[in-house]
Simulated scan of single mutants.
Amino acid sequence: MGRVSSAERRAALVRAALRVIHRDGVNGATTRAIVSEAGMSLASFHYAFRSRDEMIREVIAFVVQDEQRVSLEALDPDADIRSAVRAGMHAYFDLLRAHPSREQALQELVQYSLRTPGLEHLPRAQYASYFHTARVLLERGAEVTGVEWSLPIEQLARILIAITDGLTIAWLADRDDEAAGRLIDFAADTIGALAVSRPLVPREVN
């Protein structure tokens, strides 16, 4: 590999790690396997990351940030809240269909970390990033459609992530696009029903 920046090196290693985890599982995602997949030297890995733990956190952040980006881009300021939720979830689903191995790798990371002593903190951090992304999307959706949420945003974010988790696992298992679409419609109806119109602010009278 030619001369690349630190950011490019990190991104290449993250993409390689996702491929290795999908192909060989988390146990097989050693630093040597990852650098071999990326076409780099072991020294390149240690130049980019201080530890495998740090690299795994970067893998999670890479995927979650991409999900947030496509979902935010799908928000239409002229849409109602149900349509906004539906569009955001469809944007996520399109990304899932395009890169199923990425989501499968994240699912495996959760299960592996939960049963591996010393890695119990990783699932907590992974889901904290999911909940943060859900809060951002719900807050932005409410802002652009002129509504407020009838439940605390933290509670609503957990509901959205629970539905999205179910959608992801079920689709990875059966690849049933129509069933996934019906679940997205149900989620949009359910979450949309939890929105209320934002009260009008009285205009000052001179």
Rank of each mutant, 00 (worst) to 15 (best):
R124N: 07
N27I: 07
P202C: 05
R82Y: 06
S6E: 15
T190P: 00
L194C: 05
E8S: 13
L194V: 08
D189Y: 15
D66V: 10
S44D: 06
V136N: 08
I159A: 14
L119K: 14
G181T: 08
E148A: 13
R182E: 03
P199S: 09
R23E: 15
R175T: 08
S197L: 03
V63S: 12
R32C: 10
Y92D: 00
A91Q: 04
S5I: 06
S36W: 04
G39K: 01
R23F: 14
D174I: 11
L109G: 05
T31E: 07
W171T: 10
D189Q: 15
V14I: 12
I163V: 06
L119N: 13
F93G: 08
D174E: 15
Q68P: 05
L13W: 02
M1E: 03
E178C: 13
R32T: 14
S129T: 14
E154I: 06
I81F: 09
R10G: 08
I169R: 15
S41D: 11
V64G: 06
R203V: 12
R140N: 04
W171G: 05
L200Y: 04
I161R: 05
L95F: 11
A29K: 02
G141W: 00
L109R: 01
T116I: 08
A16L: 01
G192H: 06
P199K: 12
R57D: 13
P152W: 08
R50P: 01
V85I: 05
P123F: 02
L183R: 13
D66I: 11
Y127H: 06
W171C: 12
W149K: 09
A170D: 11
A105P: 07
V196K: 12
M89I: 14
D24K: 13
S197G: 05
G25H: 11
D94Y: 01
E108L: 11
A187M: 00
A48V: 08
R69D: 07
R182S: 01
L95M: 06
Y92T: 01
L172Q: 09
R32N: 13
I159N: 09
I56F: 15
V85P: 00
L114C: 10
Y92C: 02
G166L: 03
Q104K: 04
R50W: 01
R3M: 07
T168E: 10
A61Y: 06
L72S: 04
L183D: 11
A48W: 08
V205N: 10
S83R: 09
Q155T: 03
F45L: 12
R182Y: 02
R198H: 00
V196T: 14
A193S: 11
L114Y: 10
S6C: 10
L42Y: 10
A48E: 08
R15L: 05
T116F: 04
I34Q: 01
R57K: 14
P77N: 13
Q104R: 09
I60W: 07
A179G: 10
A91R: 04
N27D: 14
R198E: 02
S5H: 04
E154H: 10
R182D: 02
V205C: 09
E178V: 15
A128Q: 00
P100T: 13
M40G: 07
P202R: 07
D176R: 08
I163Y: 09
S36Q: 12
L160K: 03
D174N: 15
E67N: 11
E108N: 13
